[in-house]
Amino acid sequence: MLRFISRRLLVMIPMVLLISVIVFFVIQLPPGDFMSSYIAKMEASNEVFDQNTIARMRAQYGLDQPWYVQYAKWIAGILTRGDFGYSFSYNRPVWDVLSQRMGTTLAISLTTMAFTYLFSIPAGIYSAVKQYSFGDYLLSVIGFLGMGTPNFLFAIILMVISYNWFGDPMLGLVSQQFVNQPMSWAKLLDILKHMIIPVIVIGTANTCGLIRTMRSQLLDEISRPYVLTARAKGLSEKRILYKYCVRAALNPIASTIGWSLTSIFTGSTISAIVMNLPTQGPLLHQALLNQDMYLAGSWLLLMTVMILLGTILSDILLAWLDPRIRYVKAR
């Protein structure tokens, strides 16, 4: 196992480099560059630019060079100095910009993730065991409502309802008066209040999929011959279910769970924009729209590492859940 992991980690290095080139290339594909979007923004506020100024600013940011030169400089900075470059729109090092939002992003994603898994896996088991019961249908309908409603619209509707009933749309992570204030019970309470809508919106979006997958997997497992054997041997239903069936049914969930690493760090982008959550998702979205190359590039690079690590993690999980897969060299 250890050899397998270390080999996989080693393969990761060229992969990351390869992907970083592709990613960097794609980011600069849309026409225009950071300067054109920046000028468009400032001109909207009637700031005046002449063409000399624009050319000078391009040169100053190195935007007049071809993308591969920009890439080379950037990747060299990362490899030699651990310097992820400079965010044009924030005018500070990329790393500063990213770390500023890391805490809130992790807090929100982990809460919603926890909600998603803690709710949906038991719900899926229940649905499978009590197939076609009222509870099964109820869970399905709740899940489908969450899944069937586009997140952004769901969030807006909940915010407008909240505004109509309580006079407060619950925007953001915390009420204005608590921003820049030290943590207190009142603030914590306020944060929890503000977490309700995001957890519902982001949580239900994924629960449905998980409940359905879990349910169908478990149904497959329950009717397998080994269950009959186990039953015949006198094992308790509980033991059969949890020790064998559930474990096997988790397989497809496990094979993709590694990839949710990225969503933990990004947060749900569109919902976060709509609900004004200070997470990385909207930041990345803005960076991509503005072609803030190094910010977007660095972030996507980190995500790549996460995806690759996540894949390895998934493979390990798979092997753990299903002892037959041991990644010995196949024929």
């Binding site: 807006i156 505004y163 749309p169 925007l171 204005q176 921003v179 976060a272 924009i273 709509v274 004004n276």
Partner: peptide, 20 residues
């Protein structure tokens, strides 16, 4: 003057409606 960070123009609208 407190400038509260928002991500979308609709937040100004919601903020005004709710008195924020």
């Amino acid at each position: 003057l407190d400038f509260n960070k928002i991500q979308d123009d609709s937040h100004i609208e919601l903020g005004v409606l709710s008195g924020d």
